[in-house]
């Protein structure tokens, strides 16, 4: 497992490519990246992501381990950024490798659902100069019940 919580941008293409190399018992790799989205017609200038250093890595590692065991994943990669990001920038990526594609897809979805509401990150949007904390959505919590 490779987990990284970082302020710096990451190279999604290079990391995805490296992740897919060197396996002989893997038939499927799924990669996902999350991007800062402007829902306010150009009003979003910045998204600030705060996290809980120490707990963030611990929580991600625990969820990645659960995903790895549950979906028989050969390898897992999670990168999540914090700090000040602009619309269009990549916030995070997940990659899963498994013998079969169903497990790779499910493992990635499971991780995404857990990162959304069980990893200690908080988003603050600066919209038209006004800061506002992003509220957790009830459907994000509901998404966990399917697992």
């Amino acid at each position: 497992m490779k987990i990284s919580v970082q302020a710096e941008p990451f190279d999604y293409g290079a990391l995805s490519n490296a992740f897919a190399q060197g396996h002989t018992h893997v038939g499927a790799v799924v990669t996902f990246c999350g991007i800062v989205r402007d829902d306010d017609l150009g009003g979003l200038s910045t998204m600030e992501i705060e996290h809980y250093p120490g707990m963030t890595e611990k929580a991600i590692r625990a969820h990645a381990k659960t995903a790895k065991d549950r979906f028989s994943l050969a390898e897992v990669l999670v990168i999540h950024r914090y700090g000040s990001l602009k619309p269009g920038e990549m916030i995070m990526m997940v990659a899963t490798a498994a013998p079969h594609r169903n497990d790779a897809f499910k493992g990635a979805e499971f991780l995404m659902d857990y990162l959304k509401s069980r990893a200690p990150f908080w988003k603050k949007e600066i919209v038209n100069g006004e800061p506002r904390w992003v509220d957790a959505k009830p459907e994000d919590e509901d998404a966990l019940s399917r697992w």
């Binding site: 929580a59 995070m92 957790a136």
Partner: peptide, 26 residues
């Protein structure tokens, strides 16, 4: 101590207790 817990959990051996809003990662 960096593990998510319920409100009725014991803090007797706790070193660090963190309070925050529902998380919005991903």
């Amino acid at each position: 101590d960096q593990d998510l817990v319920d409100m009725d959990s014991s803090i007797e051996n706790a070193k660090e207790v963190a309070f925050f809003p529902p998380m919005t990662g991903g």
